[in-house]
Write a protein that binds this DNA or RNA. Structure first.
Length: 989
RNA sequence: GCCUAGGUGGUGAAACUGGUAGACACGCAGGACUUAAAAUCCUGUUCCCGUUAAGGGAGUGCGGGUUCGAUUCCCGCCCUAGGUACCA
């Protein structure tokens, strides 16, 4: 039979499913390997061809590792809590669980068509109560934990209570809120129980506190920093404002340092590591206090250049700084209040857009310089951010450009502090010179000055070295329905954990998925939803990232009812060896997952510091839209009938556009049946060709037409479904059926074809550029799809989807099939011993694929397969000894055809999945094309690579007779001689 | 502005540690088979000069450098994509 992908592929997919071919267990002597994909959110649109790119790559890798003798865990599941299902529920009233279920079924069907080797028996869904039970459990552990900085790990809150009871707050070194109290053991004991709980909340890793949040009114929820892009929501692009609310937060900042140092131990793409580093934003510096004798307090600032402290000529506070109103003098009060009012009105977006404008107001107050004791002015300005550092900066105009501009603008002093500074035009932050105007550090270098200043400040109690992080704690509550309920109830306004036995705390039914009339989250609508019948539950739900922050553990032991994953399973699988997914999760999912992983390690649940050892970002596949150009703005004379269903081919459109652009904006073209005239007078040679084309259709049909007038925008691009376009050539019949109003369309063609325009855009329904993998599979098969997605280019690179080249890959599979089938389509194989050339072709591919997979260069493997089959075809090789190994090598890429051929050779059905990867034999390959001259007994001889198959004597004769060679041998040592086809190309000395 | 990645034919791309640049594939052109189409196969295809050919020249964003030899290494610049931003 001919290569029939439909029959072959369905058959094998059924076989794999029925036989549980890819079911994994822990009981084996093989080394383990964990290959994970970022699990998808099952959206209503289904998969498009961009989605499976990463899954195909990971599947190839997983299958390859199996062949290499590893016990491979390769699971798949769904991140099934999320906004779209809820939005859909709001619109239609359908329960998000139902929508989600339907979408998951659709996803599963599409995934199955591609022939993945997932172990589906381990599937997880984050919205499944049996799953989110453990998400809630982890939350409870985080609530019950504090971070002991001395031990550098999270500990049970009980150990903290114990220490409070014994020694009070003395000596506690914790990651906690700023406003913790200091107290003795006696004072602690004297606190009311509520006070104690209130205080403990400031230490917990999951905690409740009033914080400024990104409130998105349109979505009715708060958003995390990484969900806000340029001041608008990532989803939907709605405006986001700052608002104070009581919120659940996660003390991820406790792990800032470990999250940073851990990045050095993982094998991740450099851009991603860099993104996380920037997000954490560590800066090493110092805090400096500027005394305020009038208020008996200090202004604390953070600086990374404490050595420039003698250059301070003023201090700037953020407008929101808590000391502002207290220290503002009466004369300045009006100005200050007005300034605060204007800045608070500015949205995040405004503030970002006028970054360059200098603004600020003097408070009228002065602080003492900590080292010189001189008075320095205190200003407020919105270039100082309340949320970073201490919300106040010491201004060093000579060393910082923003301070410099501020000083210039308000005519404040600029003090040079280094003999190498040039501050005539701008601030100069260089660290090269010696200090001047700097009392105790005059004449010192930067390296000497920093510790000197810090020592002095510390001695005065006015400063100390400090490390600051940009990263904020993560807001953990969402005022939405479709998420995990937080396992908390309230009594007298204080949060308590529900009993562990009550887990999972099920998502209650509600009548509507909207906030209540009183503005509470949707869960406020649930009837009789009280903890043990009396206490109110927390009404917000967990954010989208909760369920995805630990899911790789659940795959290890997905059905366990007693724990999130058994210790045996966790110790066996340890961490993910290879993780494939998009880089858009750099500062969200990938950071939170590392945080929870570290916490679970501290908690003694698992032993790995990092969850994902190696990570690959697959590039996004963008859409490639096609356009047709319709006549839609014109005037006719001498005819009544409409003639607007005319489409011009792409090059004519470009021609037309270019030409019109060169005319005055309000000009128009008149068309006559024998050509085009510009302004009815001048014949435009350029447009003759265009005019003839256009004239043909228009005037054949309307012979009596006197003229048509065209304007600048007479032809406008219109998205056309990419599925009726092939190689940018429009299928005219399908186009007429595409939309009813195109039924009588007429075309102005080039070379008898309608060429469409194209553009790279996001893949979306409205742009008619969505390509469904099912359609590709229907036409070419899953193996072709898999190979083609890999063939498209480097995995990590983003690229537009373009079906144009797929024929080439399809041809390769057909060629391979035909090589082992005769003209009648019967399987035909020879038992003969292969020739050297045949072995060479085979071993080339064995080596190549192995190398390529190890370095994730899947696209070059596909090319190599084609070369291999071309070579074998030329050799007319249909030998069993070649095919046996070849199909194993091919199996990760094109598993269906590989299985089928394996079977046809008389091997037991399905055993190819457990075969072992063929051993590469270098004897068959040309290793190198270089010859190395060596000296033997004073005579120069050539070391020729054996595989080159050259006549030693003949080559030596040629090479040694070469003048250059002689010259080099006399002068210097020759490293190698490069020759191709017996000819010397170059000589390396 | 800063950080990161990248820039090679008509197109997707390859060249792994400096060694025949453009493998492989698409597209295009020509040809074979066929009544015809599909399918399949063959030949050519970086650009310029040379009627064909033999042959010659240029060529991996631009300008320099190191080297017998540079897409690859170094310096400066330009452009594109992604990230990030009054972060003190």
């Amino acid at each position: 039979m001919e290569y029939n992908h439909k029959v072959i592929e369905k058959g094998w997919q059924t076989f794999w499913a029925e036989n549980g071919t890819f079911r994994t267990s822990e009981s084996t002597d093989k080394p383990k390997y964990y290959v994970l994909d970022m699990f998808p959110y099952p959206s209503g649109a289904g998969l498009h061809v961009g989605h499976p790119l990463g899954y195909i790559a990971s599947d190839i890798f997983a299958r390859f590792k199996r062949l290499k003798g590893f016990n491979v865990l390769h699971p798949m599941g769904y991140d099934s809590f999320g906004l779209p299902a809820e939005q859909y529920a709001i619109q239609t009233g359908q329960h998000p669980a139902i929508t989600t279920e339907v979408n998951i079924d659709r996803y599963r069907e599409q995934l199955d068509n591609i022939g993945f080797s997932f172990d589906w028996s381990r599937e997880v869904r984050t919205s499944d109560p049996a799953y989110y039970k453990w998400t809630q459990w982890i939350f409870m552990q985080l609530f019950h934990a504090w971070y002991n900085k001395d031990a550098d790990k999270a500990e049970s809150i009980d150990t903290l209570v114990e220490r409070f009871q014994q020694t009070g707050s003395e000596g506690i070194n914790a990651a906690c809120d700023e406003d913790v109290k200091t107290f003795t053991a006696q004072e602690w004991a004297a606190f009311m129980p509520e006070e104690q709980l209130q205080e403990l909340l400031k230490y917990r890793l999951a905690y409740l506190r009033e914080s400024t949040v990104n409130w998105c009114a349109a979505l009715g929820t708060v958003l995390a920093n990484d969900e806000v892009i340029n001041g608008v929501s990532e989803r939907g692009g709605y405006p986001v404002e700052q608002k104070k609310m009581m919120q659940w937060s996660m003390r991820i900042t406790a792990y800032a340092e470990r999250l940073l140092t851990g990045l050095d131990t993982v094998d991740w793409p450099e851009p991603l590591v860099e993104m996380q580093r920037n997000w954490i934003g560590k800066s090493i510096g110092a805090t400096v206090r500027f005394p305020l004798p009038q208020l008996d307090t200090n202004i604390e600032v953070f600086t990374t250049r404490v050595d420039t402290v003698y250059g301070v000529s003023f201090v700037v506070l953020a407008p929101e700084h808590e000391l502002v109103s207290a220290l503002t003098t009466d004369e300045q009060r009006a100005a200050v209040e007005e300034y605060i009012a204007t800045t608070s009105k500015k949205s995040e977006l405004d503030r970002m857009s006028d970054v360059k404008a200098v603004s600020g107001v003097f408070t009228g107050a002065y602080a003492k310089h900590p080292l010189t004791g001189q008075d320095v002015q205190i200003w407020i300005a919105d270039y100082v951010l309340a949320g970073y550092g201490t919300g106040a900066v010491m201004a060093v105009p000579s060393g910082d450009q923003r301070d410099y501009l501020f000083a210039k603008h308000f005519d404040l002093p600029i003090i040079p502090i280094s003999d190498s500074q040039d501050i005539s035009e701008a601030a100069d932050p260089n660290k090269d010179g010696r200090y001047i105007n700097s009392e105790i550090i005059n004449g010192l270098t930067y390296e000497q000055a920093v510790p000197a200043v810090i020592d002095q400040l510390q001695a005065l109690g006015l400063g100390k070295g400090k490390i600051n992080y940009r990263m904020r704690d993560a807001i953990f509550g969402r005022q939405r329905y479709w998420g995990e309920p937080v396992p908390i109830y309230f009594k007298d306004g204080l949060p308590y954990l529900i009993d562990k036995e009550e887990l999972p705390l099920l998502l209650p039914e509600v009548d509507k998925y909207l906030p209540t009339e009183t503005g509470e989250p949707p869960l406020g609508r649930a009837q009789d939803w009280k903890y043990q019948g009396s206490n109110m539950y927390e009404l917000s739900t967990m954010p989208g990232w909760a369920g995805s922050s630990w899911y790789w553990f659940r795959y290890m032991d997905p059905k366990n009812p007693n724990t999130f994953a058994s210790r045996e399973a966790v110790d066996y699988w340890k961490s993910v060896d290879l993780y494939i997914g998009g880089s858009e999760h750099a500062t969200g999912h990938l950071l939170y997952s590392r945080f929870w992983n570290k916490f679970l390690k501290d908690w003694g649940c698992q032993g790995e510091e990092e969850p994902f050892k190696k990570l690959i970002n697959q590039g996004m596949i963008q859409g490639r839209s096609n356009f047709v150009y319709r006549l839609n703005n014109y005037a006719t004379a001498g005819i009544d009938e409409k003639i607007d269903n005319i489409f011009i081919s792409h090059n004519l459109f470009v021609h037309f556009k270019t030409f019109m652009k060169n005319l005055p904006p309000d000009s128009s073209l008149f068309l006559y049946s024998d050509g085009i005239y510009y302004n009815s007078e001048v014949l435009v040679d350029d447009l003759v060709g265009f005019g003839k084309c256009l004239g043909k259709v228009v005037f054949d049909k309307y012979p009596g037409l006197a003229n048509v007038t065209l304007y600048q925008n007479s032809f406008s691009p219109l998205h056309v479904d990419v599925n009726i376009v092939s190689n940018d050539i429009l299928d005219l019949e399908k186009f007429k059926a595409f939309r009813p109003d195109f039924a009588d369309a007429e075309f102005i063609l080039e070379d008898g074809k309608y060429h469409c325009g194209h553009e790279v855009e996001k893949m979306s329904k409205s742009k008619f550029n969505v390509v469904n993998p099912d359609d590709i599979i229907e036409q070419y098969g899953a193996d072709t799809l898999r190979l083609y997605e890999m063939f498209l280019g480097p995995l990590e690179q983003s690229k537009p989807w373009n079906t144009n080249g797929i024929e080439g890959v399809y041809k390769f599979l057909k060629k391979l099939w035909r090589l082992f089938h005769d003209a009648e389509g019967n399987f035909q194989i020879s038992n003969e011993e292969p020739t050297k050339a045949e072995y060479k072709a085979l071993h080339k591919i064995i080596k190549k694929v192995e190398d390529d997979i190890e370095r994730f260069s899947f696209n070059t493997s596909v090319s190599a397969f084609m070369i291999c089959v071309n070579e074998l075809t030329d050799l007319k090789c249909n030998k069993i000894k070649i095919l046996q190994d070849l199909v194993i090598v091919l199996q990760p890429y094109a598993p269906h055809i590989a299985e089928e051929l394996w079977c046809l050779m008389g091997q037991q059905k399905g055993t190819i999945s457990y075969a072992s990867y063929p051993v590469f034999n270098p004897e068959y390959l040309v290793e190198s094309e270089f010859a190395y001259p060596v000296s033997v007994n004073g005579k120069t001889r050539l070391n020729l690579p054996l595989a080159l198959d050259l006549d030693q004597k003949a080559v030596e004769e040629i090479v040694l007779a070469n003048e250059d060679v002689q010259r080099y041998i006399d002068g210097k040592a020759i490293r190698k001689i490069i020759f191709v086809k017996g000819k010397i190309i170059n000589i390396v000395v």
